[in-house]
């Protein structure tokens, strides 16, 4: 067992446990906080995979912006009533079964991934020579320019939509 495998074992275990914690906490604030820890672990895993820029984005956008948005919403909503309710709905055994079966199926597929197609030109050395950010940027602004622009429109729509929806009571 190599060092990297040990590290991966640690991350995998912790992340699985954290995921379970996220979906099982009664108080949403706790869920969000466990999510934060999970995201930090995920960013570390990205570093493992030579995606430094993505690791930074994961921290800044997900942990820094989206989770904070969730926390804001939790604050705006009166949760006292929810505290008294059972956390799971009546169909939870079926849901659990579905989750386990799905996991089993997906894991069984994962074991079958053996044949890899031809490798691309972005080897670890190539990426390191130029820097992760530059490599990503080059691909994003050339090959994926149109999707990039469309993504910006999606964000614009989201901004406008959020403002309109949250502005006033819907009659």
């Amino acid at each position: 067992m190599t060092t990297s495998q040990i590290f991966f074992g640690y991350f995998a275990t912790v992340m699985t446990v954290l995921s379970l914690l996220v979906v099982t906490r009664k108080n949403p604030v706790h869920s969000v906080l466990w999510m934060l820890v999970l995201f930090i672990h995920m960013a570390a895993l990205y570093l493992f995979l030579n995606a430094e820029f993505l690791a930074a984005i994961q921290m800044i956008v997900y942990a820094g912006a989206i989770l904070v948005l969730f926390l804001f919403v939790v604050m705006m909503i009166n949760l006292n009533k929810e505290e008294t309710m059972p956390k799971f709905n009546s169909q939870w055994p079926v849901g659990l079964g579905i989750g386990i079966i799905l996991a089993g199926f997906l894991v069984s597929i994962a074991g079958k991934i053996t044949v890899l197609p031809e490798l691309g030109k972005y080897s670890i050395e190539a990426v390191r020579a130029e820097g992760s950010m530059m490599t990503v940027g080059k691909v994003l602004y050339t090959e994926y320019l149109l999707p990039f622009e469309i993504a910006s429109i999606v964000l614009l729509v989201a901004i406008i939509g959020a403002v309109v929806l949250a502005k006033k009571r819907i009659e």
Partner: peptide, 22 residues
């Protein structure tokens, strides 16, 4: 009218598709 019921049916469908494929 329950969101979770619809989601459950959807999930069962997805699992079935993956299962058939496997």
């Amino acid at each position: 009218g329950m969101l979770s019921n619809y989601a459950l049916v959807m999930a069962i469908g997805a699992v079935c598709i993956v299962g058939i494929w496997i």
